[in-house]
Amino acid sequence: MAQTALDRFTGWFRYWRLPLRRFLSERRAIAAADIEDVAQEVFLRVLRYGRSEFVENPQAYLFRIATNVAAEWSMRSSRRLPHDSNWLSDLAAESNPESEIDLDIEDDQLARAVQGLTPRAREIIRLHYSDGLTHKVIAERLNISRRIIKRDLICAYTALRSALGHRL
């Protein structure tokens, strides 16, 4: 089945970006400490799906299931957090997918973590996440391979993961 570039793009967007964004906006109601419990529940529901069904679109299913679990989680804890208007951020995520979702991660904490990365990794992040350049274009511009770009990004993710560990 041939896919146009546009189809593919909307495909990725629909199949994991939007589910991810919904999850992220729901997730605000979950304390970082609870993410392991949420993951446990998500994992059990994933297994309930059966492999053949889940394999069809695992990225989307994963984040969608996570969104549901997170929503139930925040409803359960809504008595404790009466003013957490996560429905509002959810609405924002739906209506304007390009809007920022605030993650409650302090800027200076993030800044320190990003500053700790190599200059090349920072440049890749800037070009990719801010300027929206594809890996291919960045590779040409910086005269490096796409593999190195992926590797740098993976290193950046794992560095942020360990730097922000308790906040995630």
């Binding site: 991810l20 992220l24 996440y129 950046a156």
Partner: peptide, 16 residues
């Protein structure tokens, strides 16, 4: 994987 999603968003926000 969920945390990677959070990092993705954090990086996007920060870069933008």
């Amino acid at each position: 994987m969920l945390r990677a999603g959070l990092i993705h968003q954090a990086l996007t926000n920060y870069a933008r």
